[in-house]
Design a protein around this nucleic acid. Structure first.
Lengths: 198, 198
DNA sequence: ACCTGAACACCGTTCAAGT
DNA sequence: ACCTGAACACCGTTCAAGT
């Protein structure tokens, strides 16, 4: 890869990162190319689909989530606490860019996309956390990891939608931690003691 | 309202209904106007925003959901079974048009829109079902009806997203009833006997 | 090999002209 | 009062020309 091409690529990812943070994941690609000082064609050459750009922006973050899941699986004796802690991180992750939770919900079902592949390892690690809890009888076994991710994604989308409307209404904001608590409670098999539900 | 204007309005709603059913709620408005045999300006005159058209299409359906909630509140002694039955209907409703679950998630937070106002009575009736269960100690009291609707909407969105990808992958489809069961289980306070969780 | 940006396609929305 | 559709705006995407 030529040096200028590499620089352009890096610059695009940087600009995309801050643009996503400001205007959400649907920011105009034209705008991102302009801010990066490259032609729109250059952006398309490196990132043929929007998802490719999103995947590039999120790559490190997914590495962290993966590592974290592996660490939790090793060191946390309590399978319930491990999944709770990790899903909290996952929910927080999906909330960093407006629109990301929906993009992830799409990507988890489709490994043929760049974002889907980037999610893969992270999801495998998360699956291990869930399945460990299931094999220990802590969580119900009729639910798979896609189900859990879907529910978490839905929580974050709700927070976003609500936040957009906060000004002109008197409905209280959505608390992601509360909804996550509901989901986790629903996931517990209730066979064991499991007083963690508080 | 002039007779031809009324005919046009009715025709637009009919066409929109079937177009939504076929192509989802994001169908091109131009396309709907064309199929209805009117100019695009006529559509905009009657339905300044897409939501207005959606609201018109859904009006009767919401009436049914409202009535149903009222009936359940009256005749079902079991508050748990009542909410379970009604949320099942709600989830099924949100699944009729692709994209509807997201539109509803937006609308429930904003009564200033036509769709939001159309949802109002339905939501009030649903709120009553939830709150009855809460006052009886069946459901946890830190969750409000918006939270419940948000989770249900997320379930349907997951089903949709998954369905779009069914061809090119080996992930099992999302079962809305299973996820609704998880959510309901999470909503139960667990203070009473409540063996309904199976 | 890579970059550029004009050009094309598509859709939502408005509004002047017509009935 | 209502209808029409051309016109405008915006954005995504492609590709011929240039370096």
């Amino acid at each position: 890869m030529r040096a200028d091409a590499l620089r352009n690529r890096e610059r695009l990812v940087e600009v995309a990162q801050s643009a996503f943070a400001t205007n959400g994941i649907e920011t105009s690609l034209e705008e991102i190319a302009r801010q990066a000082g490259v032609g729109i064609g250059t952006l398309y050459r490196r990132f043929p689909r929007r998802e490719d750009l999103i995947a590039a922006v999120l790559a490190e973050r997914y590495l962290k989530l993966t590592e974290c899941a592996l660490t939790l699986a090793e060191h946390r004796k309590d399978a319930d606490a491990a999944l709770t802690e990790w899903l909290t991180l996952l929910v927080e992750h999906m909330a960093i860019y407006r629109g990301l939770s929906l993009a992830v919900k799409e990507a988890i079902h489709d490994q043929s996309t760049a974002l889907g592949r980037t999610c893969k390892e992270m999801m495998d690690a998360g699956t291990a956390l869930l399945e460990r809890g299931q094999s220990l009888g802590v969580f119900r076994t009729d639910v798979n990891f896609y189900d859990v991710m879907s529910l978490c994604s839905g929580i974050v989308t709700a927070v976003e939608r609500r936040a957009e409307k906060l000004a002109d209404s008197d409905i209280p904001p959505v608390d992601p931690y509360l909804l996550l608590d509901v989901v986790l409670k629903g996931l517990r098999s209730g066979v064991l003691g499991g007083g963690a539900g508080g």
